[in-house]
Amino acid sequence: MSVVEGIKENPVEEFLRTDRLPHVWCSGCGIGTTVNCFARAVKECGIPLNDLAIVSGIGCTGRVAGYLRLDSFHTTHGRAIAFATGLHLANPELKVVVYSGDGDLVGIGGNHFIHAARRNLDITVILINNFTYAMTGGQVTPTAPLDSIETTTPYGVFEQNFNLPHLAASCGAVYVARWTAYHVMQVKKAMVEALNKKGFSFIEIIAPCPTIYLRRNRLGSAIDELKYYKEHSVIQHGADTRDVGIDIRRPEKIIVGKFVDIEKPDYLTAMNEHLGEVLGDKYVRWGE
C-alpha cells in the first residue's frame, strides 16, 4: 500500500470530494479539524450517508458543504438555516446539518438562527467561531471580543459581542455545547450527541484563524492558539450559559462543555400533534 493509498483508510475520506483537494483553507485553519470530527461522529451514529444533507452559507466555513461528498448545498450568505428549514420540513427523513461560520450564522444570518432555535427545528447547527470574516480579509464579526483588531476595527473592537451558547439556549435550543478545535475527541462526542438529538442542536467550536485573526492580533500561530485552548479551557458541563461569554481577546478561561441537553417537542412533532388534535381525522399527518 502506497503512502497516499493508506490515507484512504481515514474515516473522513468517504466524506470528501477528494477531487477538490487541497481545499481553500489556510495552513493551520481549524475548520478541517472539525470536519474530521464530523466524519467520525456521523460514522459512530450510523447515519447512512445518503440520508445526510449538509447546508452551508458563505465564508470560509461556508466552503464545508463544497468539500463533503454528501447532498450538499452551498447557499447564500447567512441563509443556510432558512434553506435547511425547507429541506428538513419537506423531507423529515433527511438528517440536515448546517455547517457555517460565526459571521454567516449570527451576523447576517442571526435572525434565522434565533427563529430556528425558537421553533426547535430538528436540525443540527455546527458553528465554527474564528471571531472574524476571514474570507473577506478579516472584518469584525458579532462574536469578536473587545479589543480585537479587525480590518474594520483597526483601533480595536469596542462593541459588545454575542455569547453564542447563551443566545442559542435562550432562544430554545435543546442541545448546546461549546468546544475548541483542540478538543477533538469532545467535539466528536458532542457531534454524536447533537446528531442524535431531536430538535435544534447547536455546537460552537472555537477555532484558529492563523492567517487573519491570529496574525492581526499578534496571537501567534495555529499551534500557539491550540495550546492556549488547551491551557485555558475549563470544562463546566451544565454551566449557566449567562456565564460563558468570551468578552476579551485572551480571557483567563474559556468555559467549554455541554451546557444544555433538554427535551422539548420539535417543530414537526408539535405541528403534527397540534393539527392532529384540532383537525382530527381530516388532518393529513406530515413526515411520519
Partner: peptide
C-alpha cells in the same frame, strides 16, 4: 421570519 428567509426556505423544500 422575513421574506429573505421565505425565498430560500422554499428552495430547500424544492431540493427535498
Amino acid at each position: 421570519e422575513d421574506e429573505i428567509a421565505s425565498s430560500i426556505c422554499l428552495q430547500g423544500a424544492v431540493w427535498a
